[in-house]
Amino acid sequence: MTQLNFTGTLGRFDFNHWSYHIPVPDDVAAQMMDDNHRRVLVWIKESGPYHMALMKAKECWYVLVNQELRKKLDLEEEKVIAVKIERDHSEFGHVLPEEFQVLLDQDEEGNDYFRKLTPGKQRGLVYIVTTVKNPESRMKKSLAILHHLKLAKGKLDYKQLNILIKHYNNI
């Protein structure tokens, strides 16, 4: 796995709420992706890896940096920061939690609906489970997701999914 190091600065776009980003040099971005793959692992100030996507603006390639990460790493605009980047070879752009994997292995119908989703929707559902630290809560979210996929015949409805997640959390 090729890791590349560079120094960057936290920048800010003026056009939307996803404005904080770290520009990635063109030569680095070119080595991290191909036509079908823009997912990367990023270390910022020796902290990480963080699963991110290379994005393109008119003037540069970049990775988005959310508020939680900015606060955690005490990142300020225009200050130089050390960045390390490597291609993300994980199947879903996040590590698949064991609880979710076990349920996918056991539930053929739920697994089938999950695998038919777009990679972005799969990644989003995996992310919903990874944000929880407690194994029991990860299991409940995983159960709710598979239950929702089966009820909705594979059509994601996030409003309905959130209702099911709340239901499973109260069981």
Rank of each mutant, 00 (worst) to 15 (best):
I81F: 08
N36F: 12
E99H: 13
D88T: 11
K159E: 13
L4R: 15
A152N: 15
L64F: 08
L104H: 02
R87Q: 15
A30H: 04
I22T: 01
Q31F: 08
E68D: 12
W43P: 04
H89S: 11
T131W: 09
L41N: 10
Q122E: 06
L143R: 15
G120H: 09
M139Q: 09
N162A: 04
K150E: 10
L75W: 05
V126T: 10
L161N: 05
K141S: 11
L149N: 08
L117F: 11
K155C: 06
E68S: 09
H94N: 13
M55V: 05
T131F: 08
R123P: 06
S47I: 02
T9N: 12
Y62I: 03
H37S: 13
E91S: 10
W18P: 01
I163P: 05
K116I: 00
Q106A: 09
F114R: 07
V83G: 02
T2F: 09
W18I: 02
K84S: 09
E136L: 13
Q67I: 00
A53K: 03
H147V: 07
H37Y: 10
A57I: 01
V102I: 04
V95W: 02
H94R: 12
K72N: 08
E59D: 14
E99Q: 14
E59A: 13
Q67T: 12
H147N: 11
W18H: 06
D34Q: 12
L54R: 00
G48T: 05
E108L: 12
T118K: 15
R138V: 01
P25A: 00
L156N: 00
M139F: 04
K140P: 04
S90V: 05
D107G: 03
G154L: 01
N162D: 08
D14S: 05
A57S: 06
V42D: 00
Y50V: 01
L151T: 15
C60A: 05
S47A: 04
H148T: 09
V63Q: 00
H147C: 12
D107K: 04
V95R: 01
D34S: 15
R138G: 03
